[in-house]
Design a protein around this nucleic acid. Structure first.
Length: 145
DNA sequence: CGCTTGACCTACG
DNA sequence: ACGTAGGCCAAGC
């Protein structure tokens, strides 16, 4: 198995995981990284999405992968380098029905307690989350020794 | 062909 | 609660 294939598999895994995110919900890069089996490589997830947005001809693009539903662990949208991208992502999230709060510095924050999609119980994703009532469905089908 | 940056996260001080 | 440090891999220069 060549490393290139591994990388490609990682890309596909990320796209697949992101695609699993239901509309109106958001998740973090770290969570996606865990879902793909690489909890120690959240950056690559972002890299995948970045290339994804510039790959309209590829099998995976904006229309196929809801990259906008992926944000950082702080509950804030990564400003990439310019607020344009983050702002666009926020707009897309709002279009999905996700409420995005804008800070004075132009920071876009999303409430995980409301729109956070987290299959399987994950450790402290955020800090200030005491009670999270179950509302969505949950599936467990993997194998973890 | 090698160094730097980056849509990040967790842990430690 | 915030700042710093370490890790990890790919794309860009």
């Amino acid at each position: 198995m060549a490393r290139s294939d591994e990388a490609a598999a990682f890309f596909l895994a990320v796209y697949s995981a992101v695609r699993e995110i239901p509309p109106g919900k958001v998740t973090t890069y770290g969570h996606i990284a865990k879902l793909v089996g690489t909890p120690q490589r959240p950056r690559q997830v972002g890299v995948c999405l970045k290339h994804l947005s510039q790959d309209p001809d590829s099998r995976h693009n904006h229309d196929n992968v809801p990259w906008q539903r992926v944000i950082n662990s702080k509950g804030l949208i990564s400003p990439r380098s310019q607020p344009s991208g983050a702002r666009n992502q926020a707009a897309a999230l709002e279009a999905e029905g996700v409420e995005v709060s804008t800070g004075s510095l132009g920071e876009l924050s999303v409430d995980f307690s409301q729109y956070g999609w987290f299959p399987r119980s994950l450790p402290s994703e955020a800090d200030e989350f005491d009670d999270v009532d179950d509302e969505e469905d949950e599936d467990e089908d993997e194998d973890e020794p």
